[in-house]
Design a protein around this nucleic acid. Sequence first.
RNA 1: GCCGGAGUGGCGGAAUAGGUAGACGCACAGGACUUAAAAUCCUGCGAAUUGUAAGAUUCGUGCCGGUUCGAUUCCGGCCUCCGGCACCA
Length: 831
Amino acid sequence: MKESYNFNEVEKKWQKYWEKNKFFEVEMDSKKPKYYVLEMFPYPSGEPHMGHVKNYVIGDVVARYKHSQGYNILHPMGWDAFGLPAENAAIKNQIHPSVWTKENIQKMKSTLIDMSISYDWNREIATCNPDYYKWTQWMFLQLYKKGLAYKKKAVVNWCPSCNVVLANEQVINGKCWRCDTEVIKKELSQWFFKITEYAQRLLDDMESLEEWPEKVLTMQRNWIGRSEGARIEFLIKGSDKTIPVFTTRPDTLYGVTYFLLAPEHPLVEEIMKDSPYKAEVQKYREDVSKESAIDRVSGTSEKKGCFTGKYVINPINGEEIPIWLANYVLMGYGTGAVMAVPAHDQRDFEFAKKYNLPIRIVIQPKDKKVSSDTMKNAFDEEGIMINSGQFNGLSSSKSLDVIIDYLIKKGSGEREVNYRLRDWLISRQRYWGAPIPMIYCENCGMVPVPEKDLPVLLPENVDFKPKGMSPLESNKEFVNTICPKCGRKAKREIDTMDTFVCSSWYYLRFCSPKTDTEPFNAEELKYWMPVDQYIGGVEHAILHLLYSRFFTKALYDMGYVNFEEPFKRLFTQGMVCKGGAAMSKSKGNIVNPGEIFTKFGIDATRVMMLFAGPPEVDMEWTDKGMEGASRFLNRVWRLIYNNIDCFKKGEDKEEVSLKNLSIEAKKIRQKTHQTIKKVTEDVEKRFHFNTAISAIMELVNEAYKLELPEEGKNENDVFVLKKTLEIIVRLLAPITPHFSEELWQEMGNKESIYFKPWPEYDEKMLEEEEKLIVVQINGKLRGKFTVSASCNNEKIKEKALSLSRIKEKITGKEIVKIILVSGKLVNIVIK
RNA sequence: GCCGGAGUGGCGGAAUAGGUAGACGCACAGGACUUAAAAUCCUGCGAAUUGUAAGAUUCGUGCCGGUUCGAUUCCGGCCUCCGGCACCA
């Protein structure tokens, strides 16, 4: 054994050994309980960054830990390989996206192999391979069959820089999620997935996601944005047509003083036919259409409106109400029409003030009086109804239901639930994605590609420079095809799918990645799914995690899977920062993982990442932290090296039966068991590897202090030390696999530590023989003493009172009471 | 504006059921070993007051208040930071 730890040699040695002996390859085994650990697969951008490293290290610790508990571990890795960067890089460097992607996969894979993350590389998948995207296309066809995929002309988000449409989820503050360019609106015919049909179930089933971070659930809830209310029909004056509105406040119906339509509302044309205000309205609509998408929805732009000269009838009291157009009414939500209640809605209030429209109070607060002349803001809380006919005097919250019922009876209203969630736009006008398997025939119209003809291969020879048109259009051999129905000339769909479609089902494919007759094998799926522990960045809280949940539910409804939620437990790790900011190229604060591995080794890097703080919190990368981690491993190495003689002789004994132990040995034995307990709980329940490592450090420090007398060594003391050292190495094994494996073998073990079951602690060993009692006076610490664990409470009290310092403080004072917490503390309350 | 989360030494962080605040580590200072350096080991390390010293006293977990024998922890009210949503009717 070497006197100092040569990580280079040790890490290489065990990597080779594990690979050669196929340690991490798994098969389904119905006799063993399974555990599926998954880290979000990366986009192969080339170099893995520290964020990736953190993600995979956490996953690897979990996988190795669970393995040591006897689980059959599925821990796979693959590549989210379609996507824009490949295409952009290709355009820039004159290299084909597939070549660029494959090179990057190779680079990233070799780093992951260097890190010896315990992946079963036999199960590697890449979404850009035809044997994978064949099944992505199959998924599309199933959704199409189910009526969950449809094409429609719609105003969509368009990124003028990426030259591509974006899903709502990919628009962040009005800007493109990828390049930050301001998104514009475009009308296009596009494919959508009907995720809105699952809005309520996606919401309801969050109840079952008990082991997901609350943060993520909240974000999804906000995104789905359910609101309850009513749909109310307003009759257009002089017509038999009604315009519906959605409102969450039917209780304010008597306070409606004007009516609003979105400027692009389709009914506007119709009602304007015979209006004297035609010209003004026309101009107004043109002006609004020039407003940028961001200003329009940001809430900051000025409210602008235009009177139409038309009126609707309020169904509750027959009042005539003027119809206006307003830029703050959005066509995309509710019905694109709003009943305006300026007294009780801030936006309507501002609008009414600007255009001098009447404000009528119909809800009065309970404790004060507001008046329409003096109010500075709308009153939007609950109160007592006034000016509301037969409903006067009711509390506004209670009247919600009463009014809806009344409207239902009159035939002018319905209960309605609205969601903010929009259908998922999946068409992309780019090359590097899975082709949408659809054919357009002049005779038969839209015809899905028959399943037997899958995959629709992505042609190699394509001019993929962006022209605002799908690049596939440039390959006529691809575009021109024959109709599978009638055999006549037809054209293929030239858009590809959003890459998030590919990543919405990859976790299923890992269960049976090689099967070529079906997307996944039902039996394997039944065994492995759901994913027991999913780990990734919080940036996917809405996008990927919502889409995957939707896919799983759709597949469940079609009978392909027998579970409704794909990820049982989710962990979202924090970012790796340097200098207080997330590492990024633009900030120039990138730390290259490869360089760190060379300088300090993989295992030290793992320790540093896990020790820096709780993994869900952003961590600060410091070189000093790296040195500390490295120092710690060397310290453990020396500790074991100094005591290597312990392992040369002696057979295993029952720990409990050990007699004649020195006090020090007893203490360290107890500490060892406490440490097992602490580390197990921290890793299992809390994922707090930082405190787990600090507990191991404490044990190491204690072990250093245990100086066994040179001559006349107590054999049992030696045995206790040996056990402690073993435990240290075993507890470290999931965190520092190479390091622990080396020490384990040096200790004389033949089998790999990977197969050694996780250590267990003995309750009996945890108890301390002596307890430290803290003495307080009025809650302030005034003294301490130790007693044997068997000492009774009366004696403890007596002893506390007899401490000289305590005596001093209490003489002449009245003792009000004495509080005693068994085995812990005495608090003397004096006056 | 609404919804989450967080605020503890010089720094990262600990205190998992209301019971010794600051574990563990980093940085720093002093010492040992060394010709020297590195490495390693030992000691100290929240602030203030006081004492030759061991020590003692007070303050201290964003701020203000409350509950309690006792509050980083529970309650009420604020402030700041981070994240999400946002003219969503």
